[in-house]
Simulated scan of single mutants.
Amino acid sequence: MSRSTDFDFDADVVIVGASFAGAACALAAAQRGLRVVVLERKRDPGEKLHTTGIIVKEAAEQTLLNRVPAPMTRRIEQVRLYAPNLSQIALAAPGYYFLTTDTPSVMRWLADEMRVHGADLRLGCAFTDARAIDGGWEVEGVGRARYLVGADGARSRVARRCGLGEVRQFLYGVEYEFPGAKLAQPNALHCFISKRYAPGYIGWIAQSPMGIQTGLALRHDAANARVPDIEGFLLRVGAAGGLPRHLKPGATRAGLIPCSGPVMDMARDRAILIGDAAGIVSPVTAGGIHSAWEHGWAVGRAIAAHLRDGGPEAESIAVEAAPRFRTKRALRWAYDRLQFDWPFDLLLHSPPLRWAAEQVYFHKRRG
């Protein structure tokens, strides 16, 4: 069989999804001179978002996200953790911070960055189908591509079409945005533990560049789906978190959040999953931007190295570069099965619980 040449293909890589993981992969590959096509079903990359958009210090300093325009971010240096009875502790680590973001504007900025670096970003173009061919994939609406990358979320169509692993465990989250509003304590990320309102996860309130973001997520059971009671949650915790009364939400975000760690079989036969599609989300904090960015970037670089320099197969690099979250997966298992309100009410101020909380929020983010 003859070896395929560049002229046999319309693109080196087709990436489905233009969120953080997809953008990182596209930028990494395009900077190495690959022909990159990014398919994004939304016409506006800043609309209908599922992400809170909190960027941790590592991502803000060690990735291209350090170039996000300053007006699109707000620095937060403290976490206030609330027990179910609303007693609280302040958590911080020297030099550590988070950035809340004007997430719609950040996504539009990333779209511009992809175009500037030569990626062919096609907004309003959904992935519909693909079939395996010699040396790559025939992608409907695009043509022949050497690699197909799925960055298309927790219910990845690329995963299903290519026979790759699929996310099996989820949280379901809802977030309200209150434009122009200001918290009484705007310099903290307020996190609330409550088995009643957030079984398997937490609620949160944070100041962002646009106003206030409030959210609630809980364990998702497809057979017994439950919608988060965010209205009841805010009535319960709003005053403690410094939320002004009588606010009316503007934008609402909702969606599934992977929580089981990386999927099995995330890469095979020049098809690779990244980001939420690959389960690259912390099973405990559900934070995904830093991990998704690093994994997407590694995959983009690996594809370029394989095609340009004869490096190792990108599929193997994709698997090796995926964080395992072993400790956090164990914590997820325990939290799912052993969550009770009374230990947090009783032990919130104890040194062991404070230590554990600081490990989750500030350290060992790869664990």
Rank of each mutant, 00 (worst) to 15 (best):
S2C: 01
S4K: 15
D6W: 12
D6I: 06
D6S: 11
D8F: 09
D8I: 07
D12A: 04
V14F: 14
V16E: 14
A18R: 13
A18K: 12
A21Y: 10
Q31Y: 06
R35V: 05
V37P: 04
V38Y: 11
R41P: 05
R43Y: 13
R43E: 13
G46T: 02
L49G: 04
H50N: 08
T52K: 00
T52W: 00
I54W: 05
I55D: 12
A60G: 08
L64D: 15
V68M: 00
P71Y: 01
E77W: 04
Q78F: 05
R80T: 02
P84T: 06
N85F: 03
N85R: 05
N85A: 05
S87H: 11
Q88F: 12
A92R: 03
Y96T: 03
L99A: 01
D102W: 04
P104H: 08
R108E: 07
W109Q: 11
W109A: 11
W109T: 13
E113H: 14
M114Q: 14
H117A: 12
D120Y: 06
G124D: 11
D129Y: 03
D129S: 12
G136E: 09
G141N: 07
G141S: 05
V142H: 02
R144A: 03
G150L: 00
D152W: 09
A154N: 10
A154F: 14
S156G: 10
R161N: 15
R161L: 06
C162N: 13
E166K: 14
V174Q: 00
Y176A: 06
E177G: 08
P179K: 09
G180H: 08
G180Q: 02
K182F: 03
N187W: 02
C191E: 01
P199C: 00
P199Y: 04
G200T: 05
Y201E: 06
I202C: 02
W204Y: 09
W204T: 01
I205W: 01
G211A: 07
A223P: 01
N224I: 00
R226P: 07
R226M: 11
D229T: 00
I230E: 06
V237I: 11
A240P: 01
G241V: 01
K248F: 04
A254I: 04
G255N: 08
D265E: 15
M266H: 04
R268N: 12
D269E: 15
D269S: 13
D269F: 06
I272R: 01
L273R: 10
G279Q: 11
I280W: 02
I280Y: 03
P283H: 02
V284T: 10
A286C: 13
A286E: 07
S291P: 10
L307M: 10
G310Y: 08
P312A: 01
I317L: 00
A318P: 09
E320K: 13
R324Y: 06
R326E: 12
R326I: 02
D336L: 08
R337P: 02
Q339Y: 12
P343S: 05
H349G: 14
S350G: 13
S350T: 15
L353Y: 07
A356Q: 03
A357E: 06
A357C: 08
Q359R: 12
F362S: 09
H363S: 15
K364N: 13
R365H: 13
